[in-house]
Amino acid sequence: MTLCFCGSKQPYDTCCQPIHHNPKLATRPEQLMRARFSAHITKNVEFVVATYHPSCHAAQEKDSIAESVNSHWTRLEVLSTEEGSTDNEGFVSFQAYLEDEGLEYCLSERSRFLFENEQWFYVDGELDDSTPPRPITIESTKVGRNDPCPCGSGKKYKKCCG
């Protein structure tokens, strides 16, 4: 069993994978946010493009979206969710981390989602770029004996790969 890449601690095949096959299965903005992050890990550019709101014209930006998707994303932390001014709007605040050339970067955003045609779509977001990149050190990548195993098995590190 592989744990989902979105950090939900659920199996991937019952968490984000079904949404990757049918985006309408995301019943809340947070589910779509998590599935979009998992799509970055699994390099599913088509899903990311398809879940942008039509007003974003994401197909025209597919190359730059693919560049982002193909970055080395490592983890997602959902900080909060909020309802919008209507039932068709929702917000998700999150931090997504990526590694590049020995540095860890944090993308911190409050994303806006709209529900149209029986599906949630990502529209836009407000970035918080106050977190500077930090060097990746052995200490920051060290896995504790009782931490979840990074292989995604769902077991503790000491009982799996440790």
Rank of each mutant, 00 (worst) to 15 (best):
C4F: 05
F5N: 12
C6P: 02
G7R: 03
S8Q: 10
P11D: 15
P11F: 13
P11S: 13
Y12H: 12
T14I: 14
C15H: 06
C15F: 15
C16S: 04
P18G: 11
H21N: 14
K24H: 12
L25I: 01
L25R: 07
T27L: 11
R28S: 11
R28G: 09
L32P: 04
A35Y: 03
A35K: 01
A35N: 10
R36G: 06
S38K: 12
S38H: 09
I41V: 13
N44P: 10
V45C: 08
V45M: 14
E46H: 14
F47W: 13
F47K: 09
V49F: 11
Y52D: 03
Y52C: 13
H53P: 10
H57N: 15
A58I: 11
E61V: 09
S64N: 14
I65F: 12
A66M: 10
E67R: 11
V69C: 09
N70R: 14
S71G: 14
H72P: 09
W73F: 12
T74Q: 08
T74L: 06
R75F: 05
L76C: 08
V78N: 03
V78R: 06
L79V: 09
S80W: 06
T81H: 15
E82V: 14
E83L: 08
G84V: 05
T86K: 10
T86F: 08
T86Y: 13
N88W: 13
F91N: 09
F91L: 11
F91H: 13
V92Y: 08
S93N: 11
Q95R: 12
Y97P: 02
Y97D: 00
Y97S: 01
D100P: 05
E101D: 09
L103Q: 09
E104L: 04
C106E: 00
L107T: 03
L107E: 04
S108R: 00
S108P: 00
E109T: 03
E109Y: 00
E109H: 07
F113A: 04
L114R: 12
F115S: 08
E116A: 11
N117K: 12
N117L: 07
E118L: 04
W120N: 05
W120R: 02
F121G: 01
F121R: 02
V123C: 07
V123K: 05
D124N: 07
D124C: 06
G125H: 00
E126C: 03
L127N: 02
D129I: 12
D129Y: 11
S130D: 04
S130W: 00
T131N: 06
P132G: 00
P133C: 00
R134E: 06
R134A: 07
R134W: 03
I136Y: 09
I136Q: 00
T137W: 13
T137Q: 12
T137G: 13
I138W: 09
E139C: 13
E139I: 14
S140M: 10
S140N: 15
S140P: 13
T141M: 09
T141F: 06
K142P: 06
G144T: 11
R145I: 03
N146G: 10
P148H: 10
P150S: 04
P150T: 02
C151P: 00
C151H: 05
K155T: 05
K155P: 05
K156Q: 08
K156T: 11
K158R: 14
C161T: 10
G162P: 10
G162Y: 08
